[in-house]
Amino acid sequence: MALLTKTRERRPTSFYFLAAFFALFVLFLYGPMLTIFILSFQGENGGLTFPMNGFSFHWFGNLFEQQAVGDFGGSFSRSLKLGLIVMVVTVVVSFMAGLAFRKRFRGDSVIFYLAIASLIVPSILISLGIGLLFNIVEWQPQWFTSALGAHLTWTFPFGLLIMFAVFNRFDPSYEEAARDLGASNWQTIQYVVLPMVGPSLIGVAMFSFTLSYDEFARTLMTAGALNTLPLEIYGMTTNVTTPVLYALGTVTTGFSFLVIALALGTVAIMRRRKGQKA
């Protein structure tokens, strides 16, 4: 009876109001990107703002040429590498920390509050602090040392909090069963814990890559001589008068859509195969 009324229940009026609100929100998120999309097709002599000065694909080609200011290729590959390193380190270290936090140990609350502090300390302070530290001890800041550390202070808290959420809901009886069957600690982790928390670790991986890939303020004083992509883009907002930046925005957004479409497509295909097997 309850089920029946639920499926038959008419949508309340509030649903339509809220749905309209949600649609407006999505429009708000995408709206300004439309301007970028249009302006990336500016004519060769066009500027950063309206009016359009002709129509061309010039700026997309320009994206792959040597720039007067800015180096997309180098900075992109550095950002990609840095993002991947941050991703791997964050997954491994957060997973280890998550395991550690399942038992109480001395200093656990210190680490926990450090993680919270790391989350709320404004990014520019991390940048300034690490920059000063390296300056004083006369180490050369590099994207793979100081900037890597700066990014980890940003991704660890998220990794740790996600691990908390996972292990809070984790049923320890599976591990006990494995141990009763004579599995070693390592085997228990490898064959029982890892497969169960695997999806969340993928979440941590994606999250930390995205955070690092787009991180700006923490990289500002820690990247050393070579720029990451967000630094390059920031430099270009004040040092470029052409729509090449918009072309970059259009290309990256298009690329994101492509990746997501591919991912969704793969999931759909896998589901169908599974369905056929069953």
Partner: peptide
Amino acid sequence: IPFWTSNIIR
């Protein structure tokens, strides 16, 4: 999806 485009560009 919009969050995958650089914050600064957005």
